[in-house]
Design a protein around this nucleic acid. Structure first.
Lengths: 343, 343
DNA sequence: GTTAGCACTCGCCCATTTGGAGTGCTAATA
DNA sequence: TATTAGCACTCCAAATGGGCGAGTGCTAAC
């Protein structure tokens, strides 16, 4: 059977109506809702066809229809195609530029959550291809060396290195210069074994310190230990009855509490497609089992050439896709403006 | 009416039984539960008295009794008095010393949550009376100066200072020395206006930088903008039916999401009593409206002389107080051991 | 002061009923 | 041939009502 134009219109009408009301929609409703001038009986026939094709289904006999995952997929795809967005809604959200990435992302997450009424998460730009801007070693006290690493985008990481022996100021200064001249401007992948042994050679008897510093840099730049995902509005899910029963809510909130889980999800899925940085996952497509009754919309943002992160919004399947997608597009744009003022 | 010895025994029995089962407890149960050798009829009379006195009540006529807030209060107080704890349970929880306070507290929070099955929160030691260990200014690029502040307990804070003009290495070095000689070892309160103007004087034309640095130090050491409360196991509340209905759960989870709220709560209430660092808040006593159906147990811990923070556990009123209190005591001890190995 | 006995209350569970929304099918219509 | 009106049917959800059991309060006897 084919999905002809009229079926499409009816399907759209069913979905749109369901998004508004959250109730199964019946044939009579559609008959009045659309300007097709068809009786409910005709609609019923068409709806039976649509059900057979798998776009909609009945939660039980003699109830109205609700969209299946396939139905949502059709709806979202056709929306993405038609570029029928509501850009305006969020355009004048105010975002202050913050010194620290962290604060910026936190405030963006809570802004998005407040405006969409869904749960949001933002991953900090992955630094793994990120260039080192600056390394600073300084003595805190006799046994401890502070290592500060600044990467592009003012991502700052600290770590403390324990010393087995005391170092003179002079040696620390030397090490500083050595580290910076060797590693400045490099991405973490570019630091290879050859370079490390060359540096160790130059450091002479202090080669162990170089080892520690490189560990520290690696640890600082790698974000495994510090997932760096900011979430907001997890409690919004209680606004949607279909998600707020005990089991589902608990699993969802749990997922939001477990930043590590989120990082994996967000990293794995981001940016499969450079042309289409916005991805929509519906129901079972969702990357986490806990979210199988939700839809997840993610947007990959880029800062400069090498840094990218992901913004994700999690809500019920019957979320306002148009609003969410345009909100994400605005956010992408804002991030771009803030960090690439020249571009 | 007086709370004689027998009434106390019966009240204890009622409460203990309710803690175990979560069901209203009837007179027959108590008659068998205790070794008082009293018939259920007698118990009924006594329970009627206890109800009149406000220690217990019936959720509805012809149901067993459950403890009121006043009843719990009696139970907790007599437990605290008798020092009848179960220290052993958690004693050998393994806590690795972490370089960073943050990681340590996070892992402690999740450990506590996992072991108690309640929700936990830990506030980082308030740094407001904390001594500065070390300040480091370094140039990131032409327009930005990185200011790293290390305080006692290896609390590290960064901030970026925007520059209006370029500074030479020499000047930065000078400023570094100036800042460290002036402020090292000081608590933030000890930095007064006189000192600031003296420093500005010494900095000459660069007095504006000194101003910025002091702002940065203040901002770094003050923790207002970064509440620094770590939570774990918020989803544990779903394990307790009396807390997991939609409204309550949503309010509670919300409270746990809002770190700022938690900070206020935790700071306001901590350490009223130096002798009794462990406080129990039952039901309406709880410091947050969202927690009015919960009990909250807090413990104030001290690191060194000036730093203190709070650990809090939130659970249903019928929580295992003995276990929670001893767990908190163990945590206090561990923190003490880790950071004051000499004492 | 304690206990046995008994009537009573009330929440909970279950089966049954009722009403309404919505369907599928069929026959009539344009 | 496509559309529509009509009707019987299905099923959910909410309301109704009776039986069960746990537990109480009271009274009278010990």
């Amino acid at each position: 059977m084919e999905l002809d134009e009229r079926k499409k219109v009816i399907l759209q009408a069913v979905i749109r109506n369901y998004l508004e009301t959250g109730e199964p929609v019946g044939s009579r409703t559609i008959s009045k809702y659309t300007d097709l001038k068809l009786s409910s009986a005709t609609i019923r026939n068409e709806m039976a066809d649509l059900e057979e094709m798998g776009y909609i289904f009945q939660p039980h006999t003699s109830a109205g229809r609700i969209p299946s995952d396939k139905g949502y997929r059709f709806y979202v795809d056709s929306m993405l195609e038609s570029k029928d967005r509501r850009f305006d809604e969020m355009k004048d959200m105010l975002i202050e530029r913050q010194d620290k990435m962290e604060d910026l992302l936190k405030s963006m997450a809570s802004l998005l959550a407040a405006n969409t009424e869904y749960a949001t998460m933002i991953s900090a730009p992955a630094a793994h291809r990120n260039k080192l801007k600056f390394i600073q070693l300084s003595r805190v006290d006799a046994e401890q060396l502070l290592c500060v690493v600044v990467a592009e985008g003012n991502v700052i990481k600290n770590s403390i290195i324990k010393l087995e022996r005391e170092l003179t100021d002079e040696i620390i200064l030397k090490l500083n210069i050595l580290m910076n001249t060797c590693m400045n401007g490099l991405a973490i992948e570019e630091i290879n074994l050859a370079m490390i042994s060359r540096m160790k050679e130059q450091a002479g008897i202090h080669e162990d310190i170089v080892g520690s510093v490189i560990d520290a840099v690696a640890q600082a730049v790698r974000s495994d230990d510090d997932p760096a995902v900011y979430t907001s509005g997890a409690t919004n899910i209680f606004k949607y009855p279909e998600l707020s029963d005990n089991i589902r809510a608990s699993q969802l909130i749990n997922a939001f509490e477990d930043k590590k889980l989120l990082t994996d999800l967000i990293d794995e899925k981001s940016g499969d497609d450079k042309e289409n940085p916005i991805q929509v996952y519906i129901g079972e497509e969702a990357p986490l089992q806990a979210m199988k009754d939700c839809s997840v919309v993610t947007a990959t943002y880029r800062l400069g050439d090498d840094m990218k992160g992901t913004i994700g919004i999690v809500g019920p399947k019957r979320m306002d896709y148009a609003k969410v997608i345009s909100a994400l597009e605005v956010m992408q744009q804002k991030l771009d403006d803030l960090y690439n003022p020249g571009g």
